[in-house]
Amino acid sequence: MKMHLQRNSDANLITAYAPGSITINEHAHHSSLVVAPGWLVSPWAPARFEDLQAADFTVILEHRPEVLLLGTGRRLRFPPAATLAAFRERQIGVEVMDTAAACRTYNILMGEDREVIAALLLIETD
């Protein structure tokens, strides 16, 4: 039996990532962004991990995803618990990882039709 991958052509797929760039549906973005299967925020206000504030997550909370993937750049860094407290209060899962891992995980979860949102800080250029 021949099988074909069926993909929602309207869904946002991360097609590449590299230092200084994240590509969504073959369109390169050069700033931090928030991506969900049906919508995109680019640029996203925090440019660096140190810039993250609770208010930056308002747009994500409004969509009430099942899970938020937070890509923190080249390396895994955990924001203060208070920054993500609103997710815990709403029983929304948060997975913190480096941005490359968050990009890969987003595509997998989106392919499983999960309600996923990825908030991605750019991988710093050297």
Rank of each mutant, 00 (worst) to 15 (best):
I108N: 06
S9A: 13
A45M: 06
N107K: 04
A28Q: 14
D113A: 15
D98G: 07
E112V: 13
S31I: 11
E26N: 15
S32Y: 09
A102F: 07
P37D: 15
T99L: 05
D113G: 11
R88A: 11
E124F: 06
I117R: 00
P43E: 04
G20K: 09
L70D: 00
E115V: 05
F57N: 00
I108D: 08
K2E: 14
L40E: 14
L121Q: 01
L40R: 08
T23W: 01
H27G: 04
L52V: 03
T105P: 10
C103M: 06
G93P: 06
G111S: 13
H29P: 11
V116H: 06
S31H: 10
R90S: 14
A119T: 05
Q53C: 11
E112F: 12
G111I: 08
L120V: 10
E26H: 13
H4S: 13
D51E: 13
L121H: 00
T58C: 02
I14W: 03
A85E: 03
T99E: 01
D56G: 04
V96L: 07
F49I: 00
R90K: 06
M1D: 13
R114G: 10
D56K: 04
D98N: 15
R114T: 10
V41M: 10
M110V: 08
N107C: 03
S9W: 06
H29V: 08
N12W: 03
A28W: 05
L84I: 13
L40W: 11
F49P: 02
I117G: 06
T105E: 01
E95L: 04
P46Y: 00
S21N: 08
N8H: 05
P19E: 05
L70E: 01
I60F: 12
L109C: 00
R114W: 09
A102Y: 03
M3G: 10
Q6A: 15
N25L: 12
P80A: 15
L109N: 12
A45V: 08
E112Y: 08
L120G: 02
A55P: 03
V67T: 08
V59P: 11
G73L: 09
V94W: 12
D56H: 12
A81T: 14
I14N: 12
V116C: 12
L122T: 01
P46E: 05
R48T: 03
A100I: 02
L122K: 01
E112Q: 15
L68I: 01
A101Q: 14
H30A: 03
H29Q: 12
I14L: 08
P79F: 01
